[in-house]
Amino acid sequence: MKLSKLKSVLLIAAGVFALSGCGQEDVGDVSLGIFTLKDIKINRFVDPVVTGVTCHVSSIEANLALSDPSNNSIECHLTGPITREMIDQIDKSKDGEVIFTRSKSVLLKNMKIRRIYDEQAQTLLYVAYSTKETSGSFHHSLSAIPLYGTGGYIKPLPKVENSTK
């Protein structure tokens, strides 16, 4: 009796997981063929703070599976204004901040997108990555948005080199 209860819970969890992949941010769905249950899903999201940046993320979803492959790709573009006020609000630490998360497994595997600010290059970096190692690798992908030409750009100060003459 306990085994059938576990199967029921797993089936319900798989159904909830499958439905959680639906939403307004889904913009593309590419079938990988007639003999596979895997599709490439393309999602769009706007950075919640730097709203002038829109990113598109592609990842593989395995229908009727408890876990999706970890492969992903990200591309971000300037799609609106970026202001200095927006840049002032973001996390400027070396590890940045997670701005998007999507479940890829009922077993705690997620795809996350993190924004990192490169102050010296005046660039926003967006890295998409899997939180679970597969095939010896944490799969990841990177996209960059230069701030030059936007209201968020500040001319970087030249690096001062210590001279000991």
Results as ranks from 00 to 15, higher is better:
I74F: 01
C55G: 04
S73W: 04
G149H: 11
E61M: 10
E161N: 10
G151T: 01
V98R: 08
V46A: 05
I40K: 05
Q89P: 00
F35I: 14
I154D: 13
S58D: 06
I82K: 02
D39I: 05
N43S: 12
S4F: 14
A62I: 04
G152Y: 06
Q89D: 03
S135N: 15
V98H: 02
L157H: 10
V16D: 07
V160I: 12
P158W: 06
D91Q: 04
K159D: 08
S20C: 08
G80W: 12
G96M: 02
I87S: 01
Y129H: 11
P48M: 05
S59M: 09
E61L: 10
I154T: 15
A13N: 14
L19C: 11
C22G: 05
K5P: 00
K92F: 01
P156D: 13
R44M: 09
D118G: 03
L11T: 11
K155V: 01
S143L: 01
I34V: 11
Q89A: 05
D91F: 00
M111P: 02
V16S: 06
S163K: 13
E61K: 13
I99H: 00
T164I: 09
D29F: 08
V49I: 15
P69D: 06
N110I: 01
G15D: 14
S73N: 12
N63F: 11
G136T: 06
Q122V: 10
L78D: 04
I99L: 02
L142Q: 06
I87F: 02
S67P: 01
S70M: 03
T164F: 09
V160M: 07
S4N: 12
L3W: 07
D47R: 01
D118K: 12
H56N: 14
K104S: 09
G80F: 11
G33R: 14
T79G: 04
T54K: 00
I90D: 06
E133C: 14
G33S: 13
N110K: 13
Q24R: 10
K5L: 14
P146Q: 04
E25N: 15
I113A: 02
I34C: 03
E97H: 03
E85K: 04
S137Q: 14
I12A: 15
S70D: 06
G15F: 12
P156Y: 10
H139L: 12
K155Y: 01
E75S: 13
M111C: 10
K2L: 13
I90F: 04
N71F: 03
K7V: 13
S67H: 03
T134N: 03
E75F: 02
G80E: 08
I60M: 09
S20D: 09
L157R: 12
S105F: 05
Q120H: 12
D68G: 03
G136K: 03
I99Q: 00
L142M: 07
D47Y: 02
S8L: 15
K41T: 07
